[in-house]
Amino acid sequence: MTNAVAVLGERALREARRTPDAMVPTLLIPLFFLVVNVGQAAKIFPTDSTEFLQGQGYAAFQLPSSLLLAASFGTSALYLVEEIEGGYFDKLRATPVHRSSLVLGRLVAVAVQSVLMTTVLVGVSLLFDVRIASGVFGFLLLVVLAAMWAVGYAGFLQFVALKTRSAAATNSAGLVFFPLLFLTPNFVPRELLSRPMEIAATLNPVTYVVEAMRSLVLVDLDWPVIGIGFAVAGAFVVAMVALNVRTMSHYD
């Protein structure tokens, strides 16, 4: 199974490399939000008088939201549904590999792509005077956390693709997570939100991933916050991979 996952992952990466036009917006849109949000709110939150910025600029506070947005790309699911509609998926299903390899290969490729995109985005954010307060180890944790989110998110969309076998439905499903992304403490910490928004953000699991990322950027290694973020992302990955594997084993 490991060999088939590696072979199919390699193919998915080659596919991504050959379609840069599909990946460029995934990088540019989070950068756009980073620039716009910082442009709009940086003056409201000056570094020297805003305690939650921990001595950094507002871009450092915004970076995790952009990283999460960049990690929420659904191209692997769209390629999968294209493969289902075009008949190539049946060709792969007729090979004697473990059923789950056919979806896990794509998820491995998503993880690799996410590592590259997070690295690029963090690199660009250095131009905005962002510093990763937790150092190199913290940066690595940030990259892993973003990759976990990317795998979970792609897993969700692949699940929709396998269930519906429809490009339109898969594309629409991508929108489901956007309200969740924006119901996080996006502009200020949770304790500064209005009461209803604070409750909504507290109930939203995505909040804990954003807060873990933010902690790695702004604070040092704050393990309780980081731990919750990894636990949420880990549970998301496990749930989505399990759904993919289960759907594949019943795929007819």
């Binding site: 199919l8 075009g86 190539y88």
Partner: peptide, 20 residues
């Protein structure tokens, strides 16, 4: 339907199939 991956070359498709 001749189910082929449009973004792979003929050689890559055959090599992938063989490896699977």
């Amino acid at each position: 339907e001749a189910g082929l991956d449009p973004r792979q070359t003929g050689r890559e498709i055959l090599q992938l199939q063989a490896r699977l």
